[in-house]
Design a protein around this nucleic acid. Structure first.
Length: 269
DNA sequence: CTCCAGGCATAAA
DNA sequence: TTTATGCATGGA
């Protein structure tokens, strides 16, 4: 069991922020997460966060996953004092973090996310994992499913996807998986590209347009200058930033501001 | 019944 | 290059 006092960290906000669909609420401020094939239970009391794992696993996996080495106070202090909207958004989501999620998993989840709502996205991801994800056991001997590998999904047929209820996104995922397995799109290369090149390359995948590619860049590749504009952010920009969002002010970490705004819309609507 | 949810692919202008 | 349209599903 690892215990840490962590500033600017709120497990509940992170779990509800809609960047990862594999958090499960176990109890009061207590969640499980499956990421990169690994299972962990985390709980929080005030600033004290408990990670149920070994020191080695905490250092090699979860410190990076939860972005614990970043100084979110610095991001928050950059917010313009007179920007009332963003000030409120940061106050509402003061414990958010940009996670470092596994690339293939993030590609699939955000293909599913298009023209969809978070509740149904979560169900689709659950269905996908329980059908095609490797069966694993946590430290208590409970079963969980890893996220399906790209090879496993590439070997599927559209008919096998039917019970997942992916709608028209099923063929996108199948095609994207085959593009990766065939080498047509090289994810290992994408990992080493800068933001602009990674986005362009990801958009070659079927079902991945600009918005989904930017989400993948932000939530998997940690290009935190990515600023995905979805329907909610569009409304925020129209209502509060008629002259455009001040991207220059937040150059290098605009994606963090995007996440504060997205979460704020989530909890206030 | 209609409208909408973290858009995308395709065709047409 | 920008702008219209169809697309699966389920909940409000």
């Amino acid at each position: 069991m690892i215990e840490r006092e962590i500033a600017d960290f709120d497990l509940e906000q992170i779990a509800r922020s809609g960047q990862c669909f594999r958090f499960r609420e176990l109890g009061e401020k207590r969640y499980s997460v499956v990421a990169g094939g690994k299972y962990i239970e985390v709980c929080q009391e005030g600033r004290l966060v408990r990670f149920d794992c070994s020191e080695e696993t905490f250092e090699s996996v979860w410190r990076g996953y939860f972005d614990l080495d970043a100084d979110y106070g610095r991001y928050k202090r950059a917010v313009a004092k007179r920007d009332q909207y963003l000030q409120r958004a940061v106050a509402a989501g003061c414990g958010l973090r940009i996670l470092r999620q596994e690339l293939w998993e993030t590609i699939v989840c955000f293909i599913i996310s298009q023209q969809n709502n978070i509740g149904r996205i979560t169900k689709c991801v659950e269905n996908l994992c329980s059908l095609f994800g490797e069966i694993c056991y946590n430290r208590s001997g409970q079963v969980y499913n890893a996220f399906p590998t790209v090879e496993r999904l590439a070997a599927c047929t559209l008919e096998e996807f039917a019970p997942i209820r992916l709608g028209y996104r099923a063929r996108y995922i199948l095609s994207a998986a085959r593009q990766v397995v065939s080498g047509e799109v090289d994810l290992e290369a994408v990992r080493h590209m800068d933001y602009a090149h990674a986005r362009t390359e990801l958009m070659r995948l079927s079902g991945v347009g600009r918005k989904v590619a930017e989400c993948i860049c932000l939530f998997a590749l940690h290009h935190i200058d990515a600023f995905p504009i979805d329907t909610h952010i569009r409304q925020v920009l129209d209502a509060h930033y008629p002259k455009g969002f001040p991207l220059k002010r937040y150059r290098g970490f605009a994606g963090v501001m995007q996440q504060y705004a997205f979460y704020y819309e989530l909890v206030t609507n």
